[in-house]
Simulated scan of single mutants.
Amino acid sequence: MTKLNYMQCWNGAMALLGAHKEAILAIAGVFLFLPTFLFAQFIQQPVLTGDEDANALLAVYSVYFSENALPIMLSNLVISFGGLAIYFTLAPSRDHTVADNLMAALKVFLIYLVANLLTGLLTLMGFFFLILPGLYLASRFALVPIVIVDQAERNPIEALRKSWSLTQNNGFSILLFILIIAIVGTIAVGALQAVTGIVTGLATSGAGWPFIENLVASLTGTAFQLVLAVVVMSVYLELAGKKRDVREIFN
Protein backbone atom coordinates (compact mmCIF):
# COMPACT_ATOMS: atom_id res chain seq x y z
CA MET A 1 0.00 0.00 0.00
CA THR A 2 1.40 3.39 -1.04
CA LYS A 3 2.32 5.74 1.78
CA LEU A 4 1.69 9.42 1.29
CA ASN A 5 4.79 11.52 0.67
CA TYR A 6 4.07 15.13 1.61
CA MET A 7 6.87 16.69 -0.41
CA GLN A 8 5.98 14.76 -3.56
CA CYS A 9 2.31 15.63 -3.12
CA TRP A 10 3.03 19.32 -2.67
CA ASN A 11 5.42 19.44 -5.63
CA GLY A 12 2.89 17.54 -7.71
CA ALA A 13 0.14 19.96 -6.70
CA MET A 14 2.21 22.99 -7.72
CA ALA A 15 3.13 21.28 -10.99
CA LEU A 16 -0.55 20.59 -11.70
CA LEU A 17 -1.37 24.22 -10.96
CA GLY A 18 1.29 25.40 -13.38
CA ALA A 19 0.39 22.93 -16.12
CA HIS A 20 -3.33 23.77 -16.13
CA LYS A 21 -3.31 27.37 -14.88
CA GLU A 22 -5.08 28.93 -17.89
CA ALA A 23 -7.98 26.49 -17.85
CA ILE A 24 -8.51 26.36 -14.10
CA LEU A 25 -8.19 30.13 -13.72
CA ALA A 26 -10.86 30.61 -16.38
CA ILE A 27 -13.22 28.19 -14.62
CA ALA A 28 -12.39 29.54 -11.16
CA GLY A 29 -12.98 33.12 -12.26
CA VAL A 30 -16.52 32.42 -13.41
CA PHE A 31 -17.67 29.67 -11.05
CA LEU A 32 -15.70 30.30 -7.84
CA PHE A 33 -14.66 33.96 -7.67
CA LEU A 34 -17.70 35.61 -9.27
CA PRO A 35 -20.44 33.99 -7.12
CA THR A 36 -18.32 34.50 -3.99
CA PHE A 37 -17.78 38.17 -4.78
CA LEU A 38 -21.40 38.84 -5.75
CA PHE A 39 -22.66 37.11 -2.61
CA ALA A 40 -20.31 39.15 -0.39
CA GLN A 41 -21.22 42.35 -2.20
CA PHE A 42 -25.00 42.03 -2.14
CA ILE A 43 -25.87 39.78 0.83
CA GLN A 44 -25.51 41.47 4.20
CA GLN A 45 -23.73 39.32 6.76
CA PRO A 46 -25.13 39.10 10.33
CA VAL A 47 -23.93 41.89 12.59
CA LEU A 48 -22.61 40.50 15.88
CA THR A 49 -21.62 42.41 19.00
CA GLY A 50 -19.45 39.64 20.42
CA ASP A 51 -21.61 39.27 23.52
CA GLU A 52 -24.04 36.74 22.07
CA ASP A 53 -24.47 33.41 23.79
CA ALA A 54 -25.18 30.15 21.94
CA ASN A 55 -28.95 30.74 21.85
CA ALA A 56 -28.54 34.28 20.54
CA LEU A 57 -26.12 33.13 17.83
CA LEU A 58 -28.51 30.37 16.81
CA ALA A 59 -31.36 32.88 16.55
CA VAL A 60 -29.30 35.36 14.51
CA TYR A 61 -28.08 32.78 12.03
CA SER A 62 -31.46 31.10 11.77
CA VAL A 63 -32.92 34.40 10.59
CA TYR A 64 -29.96 34.97 8.28
CA PHE A 65 -30.24 31.58 6.59
CA SER A 66 -34.02 31.75 6.30
CA GLU A 67 -33.89 35.20 4.67
CA ASN A 68 -31.06 34.27 2.29
CA ALA A 69 -31.76 30.60 1.61
CA LEU A 70 -32.05 31.00 -2.18
CA PRO A 71 -28.84 32.99 -2.82
CA ILE A 72 -26.92 30.75 -0.39
CA MET A 73 -28.13 27.63 -2.19
CA LEU A 74 -27.50 29.01 -5.69
CA SER A 75 -24.01 30.32 -4.91
CA ASN A 76 -23.03 27.01 -3.30
CA LEU A 77 -24.33 25.06 -6.28
CA VAL A 78 -22.39 27.22 -8.73
CA ILE A 79 -19.21 26.96 -6.65
CA SER A 80 -19.63 23.18 -6.34
CA PHE A 81 -20.08 22.89 -10.09
CA GLY A 82 -16.95 24.96 -10.65
CA GLY A 83 -14.96 22.74 -8.30
CA LEU A 84 -16.11 19.64 -10.17
CA ALA A 85 -15.17 21.20 -13.53
CA ILE A 86 -11.71 21.97 -12.16
CA TYR A 87 -11.28 18.33 -11.14
CA PHE A 88 -12.21 17.32 -14.70
CA THR A 89 -9.54 19.71 -15.97
CA LEU A 90 -6.89 18.23 -13.66
CA ALA A 91 -7.79 14.56 -14.17
CA PRO A 92 -4.94 12.59 -15.83
CA SER A 93 -7.38 10.52 -17.86
CA ARG A 94 -8.62 13.62 -19.69
CA ASP A 95 -7.13 16.13 -22.15
CA HIS A 96 -10.10 18.24 -23.19
CA THR A 97 -11.07 21.86 -23.70
CA VAL A 98 -12.65 23.99 -20.98
CA ALA A 99 -16.02 23.69 -22.74
CA ASP A 100 -15.72 19.88 -22.82
CA ASN A 101 -14.86 19.77 -19.12
CA LEU A 102 -17.78 22.01 -18.22
CA MET A 103 -20.13 19.78 -20.20
CA ALA A 104 -18.68 16.65 -18.59
CA ALA A 105 -19.13 18.22 -15.14
CA LEU A 106 -22.74 19.09 -15.95
CA LYS A 107 -23.52 15.49 -16.94
CA VAL A 108 -22.38 14.05 -13.60
CA PHE A 109 -23.24 17.00 -11.35
CA LEU A 110 -26.25 15.28 -9.78
CA ILE A 111 -24.19 12.16 -9.02
CA TYR A 112 -21.52 14.42 -7.51
CA LEU A 113 -24.09 16.14 -5.29
CA VAL A 114 -25.50 12.81 -4.08
CA ALA A 115 -21.98 11.57 -3.31
CA ASN A 116 -21.24 14.80 -1.42
CA LEU A 117 -24.46 14.43 0.54
CA LEU A 118 -23.56 10.87 1.54
CA THR A 119 -20.06 11.99 2.47
CA GLY A 120 -21.47 14.81 4.56
CA LEU A 121 -23.86 12.51 6.40
CA LEU A 122 -21.13 9.99 7.21
CA THR A 123 -18.75 12.73 8.29
CA LEU A 124 -21.44 14.29 10.46
CA MET A 125 -21.89 10.94 12.21
CA GLY A 126 -18.18 11.05 13.03
CA PHE A 127 -18.52 14.55 14.48
CA PHE A 128 -21.28 13.31 16.79
CA PHE A 129 -18.63 11.32 18.62
CA LEU A 130 -15.67 13.71 18.58
CA ILE A 131 -14.08 16.19 16.19
CA LEU A 132 -11.22 13.83 15.27
CA PRO A 133 -13.40 10.95 13.97
CA GLY A 134 -15.30 13.41 11.79
CA LEU A 135 -12.10 14.86 10.35
CA TYR A 136 -10.71 11.36 9.81
CA LEU A 137 -13.80 10.30 7.87
CA ALA A 138 -13.63 13.49 5.80
CA SER A 139 -10.04 12.66 4.85
CA ARG A 140 -10.94 9.08 3.89
CA PHE A 141 -13.70 10.35 1.58
CA ALA A 142 -11.71 13.30 0.19
CA LEU A 143 -11.08 11.50 -3.11
CA VAL A 144 -14.74 10.80 -3.90
CA PRO A 145 -15.12 13.58 -6.52
CA ILE A 146 -11.89 12.56 -8.24
CA VAL A 147 -12.99 8.93 -8.41
CA ILE A 148 -16.15 10.16 -10.15
CA VAL A 149 -14.10 12.29 -12.54
CA ASP A 150 -11.04 10.18 -13.30
CA GLN A 151 -12.46 6.67 -13.00
CA ALA A 152 -15.86 7.48 -14.52
CA GLU A 153 -17.60 6.03 -11.48
CA ARG A 154 -21.32 6.78 -11.63
CA ASN A 155 -22.47 4.98 -8.49
CA PRO A 156 -22.13 7.37 -5.52
CA ILE A 157 -21.83 4.55 -3.00
CA GLU A 158 -19.16 2.84 -5.08
CA ALA A 159 -17.32 6.17 -5.34
CA LEU A 160 -17.23 6.34 -1.53
CA ARG A 161 -15.99 2.77 -1.35
CA LYS A 162 -13.20 3.41 -3.84
CA SER A 163 -12.10 6.55 -2.00
CA TRP A 164 -12.03 4.55 1.23
CA SER A 165 -9.91 1.90 -0.46
CA LEU A 166 -7.49 4.38 -2.04
CA THR A 167 -6.89 6.14 1.28
CA GLN A 168 -6.35 2.95 3.27
CA ASN A 169 -3.57 3.38 5.87
CA ASN A 170 -3.29 7.04 4.88
CA GLY A 171 -6.31 8.59 6.56
CA PHE A 172 -4.39 10.44 9.27
CA SER A 173 -1.59 11.34 6.84
CA ILE A 174 -4.09 13.00 4.50
CA LEU A 175 -5.78 14.68 7.46
CA LEU A 176 -2.51 16.13 8.75
CA PHE A 177 -1.40 17.24 5.28
CA ILE A 178 -4.65 19.06 4.51
CA LEU A 179 -4.83 20.52 8.03
CA ILE A 180 -1.35 22.01 7.67
CA ILE A 181 -2.27 23.57 4.32
CA ALA A 182 -5.64 24.75 5.65
CA ILE A 183 -4.11 26.37 8.74
CA VAL A 184 -1.32 28.10 6.82
CA GLY A 185 -3.76 29.17 4.10
CA THR A 186 -6.30 30.48 6.60
CA ILE A 187 -3.64 32.53 8.39
CA ALA A 188 -2.34 33.93 5.09
CA VAL A 189 -5.83 34.78 3.80
CA GLY A 190 -6.80 36.31 7.15
CA ALA A 191 -3.64 38.41 7.23
CA LEU A 192 -4.21 39.74 3.70
CA GLN A 193 -7.81 40.59 4.50
CA ALA A 194 -6.80 42.29 7.74
CA VAL A 195 -4.19 44.40 5.96
CA THR A 196 -6.75 45.33 3.32
CA GLY A 197 -9.21 46.36 6.03
CA ILE A 198 -6.59 48.49 7.76
CA VAL A 199 -5.50 50.20 4.53
CA THR A 200 -9.05 50.93 3.36
CA GLY A 201 -10.00 52.05 6.87
CA LEU A 202 -7.11 54.52 6.99
CA ALA A 203 -7.86 55.74 3.46
CA THR A 204 -11.52 56.40 4.28
CA SER A 205 -11.19 57.66 7.86
CA GLY A 206 -12.52 54.43 9.31
CA ALA A 207 -15.48 53.96 6.97
CA GLY A 208 -13.80 51.24 4.94
CA TRP A 209 -14.36 50.34 1.30
CA PRO A 210 -16.53 47.21 1.10
CA PHE A 211 -15.98 46.75 -2.64
CA ILE A 212 -12.20 46.46 -2.28
CA GLU A 213 -12.47 44.39 0.90
CA ASN A 214 -14.92 41.96 -0.72
CA LEU A 215 -12.77 41.82 -3.86
CA VAL A 216 -9.64 40.88 -1.91
CA ALA A 217 -11.54 38.39 0.26
CA SER A 218 -13.05 36.71 -2.81
CA LEU A 219 -9.73 36.57 -4.66
CA THR A 220 -7.83 35.11 -1.72
CA GLY A 221 -10.64 32.67 -0.95
CA THR A 222 -10.69 31.49 -4.56
CA ALA A 223 -6.91 31.05 -4.58
CA PHE A 224 -7.16 29.00 -1.40
CA GLN A 225 -9.83 26.75 -2.95
CA LEU A 226 -7.64 26.20 -6.02
CA VAL A 227 -4.69 25.19 -3.86
CA LEU A 228 -6.85 22.70 -1.97
CA ALA A 229 -8.20 21.29 -5.26
CA VAL A 230 -4.75 20.65 -6.74
CA VAL A 231 -3.53 19.22 -3.43
CA VAL A 232 -6.41 16.73 -3.29
CA MET A 233 -5.79 15.76 -6.91
CA SER A 234 -2.09 15.32 -6.17
CA VAL A 235 -2.93 13.07 -3.21
CA TYR A 236 -5.09 10.96 -5.52
CA LEU A 237 -2.32 10.70 -8.14
CA GLU A 238 0.16 9.67 -5.45
CA LEU A 239 -2.07 7.00 -3.90
CA ALA A 240 -3.46 5.71 -7.20
CA GLY A 241 0.04 5.38 -8.68
CA LYS A 242 -0.66 7.76 -11.56
CA LYS A 243 2.34 10.07 -11.24
CA ARG A 244 3.59 8.82 -14.60
CA ASP A 245 0.47 10.20 -16.28
CA VAL A 246 1.10 13.58 -14.71
CA ARG A 247 4.62 13.73 -16.12
CA GLU A 248 3.25 12.98 -19.56
CA ILE A 249 0.87 15.91 -19.25
CA PHE A 250 3.71 18.23 -18.26
CA ASN A 251 5.81 17.15 -21.19
Rank of each mutant, 00 (worst) to 15 (best):
Ala91Val: 14
Phe37Trp: 11
Met14Ser: 09
Ala99Glu: 12
Ile249Met: 10
Ser80Asn: 15
Phe42Tyr: 14
Ala152Tyr: 05
Met1Gln: 01
Gly126Phe: 06
His20Asn: 11
Gly83Ala: 05
Ala54Arg: 06
Ile178His: 14
Leu74Gln: 01
Ala19Gly: 12
Gly206Ser: 11
Ala194Val: 06
Asn68His: 10
Pro46Met: 12
Leu48Ser: 04
Phe81Asp: 06
Ile146Phe: 13
Arg247Asp: 15
Leu166Cys: 09
Tyr112Gln: 05
Met7Gly: 10
Gly50Arg: 01
Lys3Leu: 11
Ile27Leu: 05
Met7Arg: 14
Met233Ser: 10
Gln193Val: 10
Trp10Leu: 13
Phe109Gln: 13
Leu226Asp: 01
Asn116Cys: 08
Phe250Ser: 03
Leu84Asp: 05
Ile27His: 04
Val108Tyr: 08
Phe39Lys: 09
Met1Asn: 02
Gly206Arg: 11
Ala69Asp: 01
Leu90Phe: 12
Gln44His: 05
Asn251Met: 12
Leu106Trp: 11
Met103Asn: 13
Ile43Gly: 10
Gly201Glu: 02
Phe33Thr: 01
Gly208Asp: 09
Gln225Tyr: 11
Tyr87Trp: 01
Leu228Asp: 04
Ala23Val: 01
Gly82Met: 03
Glu158Asn: 13
Gln168His: 15
Glu67Gly: 06
Pro46Ser: 11
Leu121Pro: 04
Ser163Val: 07
Ala59Lys: 07
Ile24Leu: 14
Val114Gly: 08
Ser173Leu: 08
Val216Cys: 08
Arg154Thr: 14
Leu118Trp: 06
Ile249Thr: 04
Ser139Tyr: 10
Gly190Cys: 10
Leu118Cys: 06
Gly185Glu: 11
Gln41Ser: 14
Gly12Asp: 09
Met125Arg: 12
Ile111Asp: 08
Leu192Thr: 07
Val246Gly: 03
Val189Asn: 00
Gly50Thr: 03
Gly82Arg: 03
Leu118Pro: 04
Tyr112Ser: 09
Thr36Lys: 13
Leu38Pro: 03
Leu70Tyr: 14
Ala13Gln: 07
Lys243His: 01
Phe128Lys: 09
Phe65Tyr: 15
Phe109Cys: 10
Thr2Ala: 14
Phe81Ile: 01
Ala23Ile: 00
Phe109Ser: 12
Tyr136Gln: 02
Gln45Pro: 00
Val78Cys: 14
Glu67Phe: 12
Met1Pro: 00
Asp51Asn: 15
Leu137Gly: 03
Ile174Phe: 11
Tyr6Pro: 02
Thr2Val: 15
Thr167Arg: 08
Ala217Ser: 15
Met103Glu: 13
Asn5Val: 06
Thr123Cys: 15
Leu4Asp: 10
Ile79Trp: 07
Thr49Trp: 03
Met1Gly: 00
Asn76Ala: 12
Val195Thr: 13
Val232Gln: 15
Pro145Ala: 15
Ile72Trp: 09
Ile146Gly: 01
Ile131Ser: 09
Gly120Ala: 07
Ala40Tyr: 04
Met14Thr: 11
Ile148Val: 13
Ser163His: 05
Leu106Asn: 07
Met14Trp: 10
Val63Glu: 15
Asp100Arg: 07
Asn116Arg: 12
Trp164Arg: 12
Ala23Phe: 02
Ala40Met: 03
Ile198Cys: 11
Val78Ile: 15
Val144Gln: 08
Val199Gly: 04
Pro210Ile: 08
